[in-house]
Design a protein around this nucleic acid. Structure first.
Length: 372
DNA sequence: TACGCATCATGATGAGACTC
DNA sequence: GAGTCTCATCATGATGCGTA
């Protein structure tokens, strides 16, 4: 297979500082930042003022910062100072093909980054990359194959998201809007139907045991939390030393500082940090309560004290209103959630296989092993 | 002028000081 | 000692300065 160096194929131009405007107006163009290379859900604008402009056929690379090396294409607009554009000198290449090739070299580009504190793309490393120099027909074949594989991944991700929405819709269908309470269920405070456990203040001096130390980062949102991602765990002696109590299996754990109302269920006995609050359900189903609390974030944000960060004290946490449908109905909802979770687990396994397959295809394609 | 790098701004989270 | 509040730290992205 023949190859062409990136420096022979592209002209590279770094972006400049862009003055962002608050809303789209006449003459405004899109302002592209690093986030825009990953998703399209927060489009920003600027007034065209001799900025560095990306055309649809250009490839954009994140030059500086934690996500240096991220590749985007098919975007049009002014690029910020942390991005650079690669403009084609030669018309015999598809931008999607080149973009996919550069994406496959992400690890190489990251390994070659310079900078002690902030990674910066090494221009030398980038321009020395050798890209397969193949016919447009072959490029199209490779792009189509990878596109099909990517579409399967996107569909699977969408299906997983749909399952989350399905559970929320089922909740509304069975119980009605948690804020409006159209079915006129009896409303109580959460402390009337649960015991609450204060997490304690002192931090353990050592972590040598197996009982997981759980922070907000460890919560499996609307799911079951089994352990600590950091691997930190305590012994019974270490727990006694800081006068803490184990949160029992099945408790509902909720964040009460910062991003309020993130909920999960304790899948084992655990110790939670100061930013979390736990409820031990007495007259309410724990899965029902977890989803209910997830719907009441607006209420929590309203009631929380807004110091440097949003903060709900024990009184606020315990006084969150919760409606009380019959327990049989709550249990029915919980069974539905368990069935959906089983399906979701299978889909997540399948997604991982699809992603592995995509990466393998990409490596083989650019080594010339995919097509003769 | 391009490149390399540090610093600034912001938001999220961790941890300890303060008050009752 | 428990509960509350505030500051510190970290991660990330944006910006600007010094040097060749």
């Amino acid at each position: 297979m023949k190859y062409i160096k990136v420096k022979d194929l592209f002209e590279i131009k770094k972006g400049k500082k862009v003055e962002q405007i608050n809303e789209k107006k006449d003459g405004a163009i899109r302002y592209i930042q690093i986030d825009d290379l990953r998703n399209d859900d927060n489009i920003k604008y600027c007034v065209n003022n001799k900025y560095v402009l990306a055309r649809k056929e250009d490839i954009i690379i994140a030059w500086d910062g934690a996500n240096a090396g991220t590749i985007g294409y098919g975007l049009e607009g002014a690029i910020g100072s942390t991005l650079a554009i690669l403009s084609f000198k030669d018309k015999g290449f598809m931008s999607e093909f080149c973009g996919l090739f550069l994406k496959s070299k992400f690890k190489y580009l990251r390994d070659k980054c310079t900078g002690a504190t902030i990674p910066h793309i090494s221009k030398q490393a980038l321009v020395d990359l050798k890209m397969p120099n193949i016919s447009l027909e072959k490029q199209k074949e490779i792009v189509n194959t990878l596109r099909i594989s990517q579409e399967l991944i996107d569909k699977r991700k969408a299906q997983i998201e749909d399952l989350d929405e399905l559970v929320k819709s089922r909740f509304i269908e069975m119980f009605g809007d948690p804020v409006l309470n159209p079915k006129r269920w009896v409303v109580k405070s959460v402390i009337d139907v649960c015991d609450c456990m204060v997490p304690g203040r002192d931090k353990p001096k050592s972590f040598t045991g197996d009982i997981p130390w759980i922070t907000i980062e460890d919560l499996n949102v609307n799911g079951v939390t089994l352990g600590s991602k950091s691997g930190l765990g305590l012994t019974d002696k270490e727990i006694d030393e800081v006068h803490r109590k184990k949160v029992p299996l099945g408790s509902v754990i909720m964040s009460c500082v910062g991003n309020l109302g993130i909920c999960s269920i304790a899948g084992t006995e655990m110790i939670i940090n100061q930013q979390l609050h736990s409820f031990q359900c007495k007259n309410i189903n724990n899965i029902f309560l977890m989803y209910y609390l997830g719907f009441r974030k607006d209420y929590m944000n309203l009631k929380a004290s807004n110091t440097t960060v949003l903060y709900m004290n024990k009184t606020i946490c315990n006084s969150i209103p919760v409606y009380q449908p019959p327990i049989e109905l709550q249990n029915q909802f919980a069974s539905f959630v368990k069935q959906v979770d089983k399906l979701k687990f299978e889909m997540e396994q399948s997604l991982k296989e699809l992603e592995d397959n995509f990466n393998s295809l990409m490596q083989r394609a650019f080594k010339g092993e995919l097509f003769n």
